[in-house]
Design a protein around this nucleic acid. Structure first.
Length: 429
RNA sequence: GGAGGGGUGGCCGAGCGGUUGAAGGCGCCGGUCUUGAAAACCGGAAUCCCGCAAGGGAUCGGGGGUUCGAAUCCCUCCCCCUCCGCCA
């Protein structure tokens, strides 16, 4: 959520910044409501001041044993008037809120303006392996090994689900544990285990609601009409851990890592990545989340990208880092780097991580603040999140990059300790 | 699911119709003392909104109501705790 005060003071700048992000057209409407609201607030507060004054006088009079019935009657009508005006103000505020919740974050000045084709490649690591044979897509590799089973997954649920058998299931688990160990032991993150079902307020805090409800799985309504939603990423519950809290600057930055499944409707993705397990309704992810001060958040973003890159380096998987342009950057983010891993079966780089600095956008929605060490007033924190990494896509990357001519897959050495030293997946393993 | 108790400032906790934005404690900031620190003592500090300012308004889980006036009374919703039942 953006700061209304900031929009009021920099309307042109905000409208311009939102041009490639959407929502620029509602800035004027918002400012109109804002002006209306302030006019009404000023008026009603004058009446409230009057009521408070007279009420105190009535209290005095009562203490003297008098009964100022005239004043009391006057205050009764004044009270009704105030109630009406307050209701009108609430209406205006709801209108403002509705707009504010739909406005995306403002991009950082370093972000290229434009659409996806304006994304900038920042760096590459590792050279795609030269195959003496035609590398297969992961679904062929996996099905031949008997570790990926899309048919049975569709039988159990529907399309866009996968069953992992034997070494495939173990590989998924090994990848997750390898990543968790790396981030907790070497990168200074604290592991946290969180609910996979969260309420609407939590979803609103990180920006999933109200705008992206169609992307979420919602459970049947609980009593009182308060549904729970399956998390589309651990970013949601982990960022919200400190919702409504005032942290001490001394305890920042908070660095958390969580391993959770992620559930996504993938509405609107019909026809995209229908084969294989690139785009699933359910996938595992190791997620990194940071809560920092504004002064350090961009250093922390660079560090987080480096932490995610380290996973790929140790797995010896070639990748590139891409700085997303304004139009491709997510709703809540001010600046996002994607990590794209090389998939030889598809002959292209595919997203395997996305690291974002949301600045105060989520903190404002979820009321995550910190008290400066100097003891001043509480400020909104900055929140960051990044995949470190998407586990399912990591498994895909291993299958495609490490496949051999005979159909087996060589396990990257960094992963072998997590698989009892297993070096190779062969059919039937 | 049944019965009961409770949600107050950064935290703990008093208040149960009118000088209460809210006692007290802890923690925090500044000072005195000290070579330094601790202790002790003194002082300071809630958040948001409107306003150029002076100043004003709102906020005691959320919403609604009663009243001239609500943290205090009533209704409703949410959440937490205790005991019982059920259960991985």
């Amino acid at each position: 959520m953006l700061d209304v005060k900031y929009i009021r003071e920099h309307p042109d700048e905000v409208a311009r910044a939102l041009e490639t992000r959407g929502g620029a057209e509602s800035v004027q409407q918002l400012l109109g409501l804002d002006a209306d609201r302030r006019r009404r607030v000023t008026a009603v507060e004058a009446l409230k001041a009057e009521r408070n004054k007279v009420t105190a006088e009535i209290a005095q009079a009562k203490r003297r044993g008098e009964s100022p019935t005239e004043e009391m009657a006057r205050m009764r009508t004044l009270g009704d008037e105030i109630k009406e005006m307050d209701a009108a103000i609430s209406g205006v505020e709801r209108g403002m809120e509705a707009i504010l919740l739909q406005l995306p974050n403002l991009p950082h000045p370093s972000v290229p303006v434009g659409r996806a084709e304006d994304n900038q490649e920042v760096r590459r690591w590792g050279a795609p392996r030269q195959f003496p044979f035609d590398p297969k897509p992961h679904w062929e590799v996996g099905e031949r090994l008997g570790i990926l089973d899309f048919e049975r997954a569709a039988k159990l649920a529907k399309s866009r689900f996968t069953v992992l058998w034997g070494a495939g299931a173990r590989l998924e688990r090994a990848l997750a544990q390898f990543m968790l160990d790396l981030h907790t032991r070497e990168h200074g993150y604290r592991e946290v285990w969180v609910p996979h079902l969260v309420n609407a307020e939590t979803m609103q805090g990180t920006g999933q609601l109200p705008k992206f409800e169609d992307q979420l799985f919602r459970t049947l309504e609980a009593e009182g009409g308060r549904p729970l939603y399956l998390i589309p990423t651990a970013e949601v519950p982990v960022t919200a851990l400190h919702a409504g809290e005032i942290l001490k600057e001394q305890e920042l930055p908070k660095r958390y890592v969580a391993f959770t499944p992620c559930y996504r409707r993938e509405a609107g993705a019909a026809g995209q990545d229908t084969r294989g397990m690139i785009r699933q309704h359910q996938f595992d992810k190791v997620e990194l989340v940071k809560v920092t001060t504004p002064a350090t958040s961009y250093d922390e973003l660079e560090a987080m990208v480096g932490n995610a890159e380290e996973v790929l380096k140790r797995l010896e998987l070639p990748y590139r880092v891409v700085l997303l342009a304004t139009g491709d950057t997510g709703f809540a983010s001010a600046k996002t780097y994607d990590l794209e891993v090389w998939l030889p079966g598809q002959g292209k780089y595919r997203e395997i991580s996305s690291c974002s600095n949301c600045e105060a956008f989520q903190a404002r929605r979820a009321e995550i603040r910190y008290r400066p060490a100097s003891g001043g007033k509480a400020e909104f924190a900055h929140t960051l999140n990044g995949s470190g990494l998407a586990v399912g896509r990591s498994l895909i990357a291993v299958l495609e990059n490490c496949q051999e001519a005979d159909g087996s897959v060589t396990i990257p050495p960094a992963l072998r300790p997590y698989l009892d030293g297993l070096e190779r997946i062969t059919p039937g393993s």
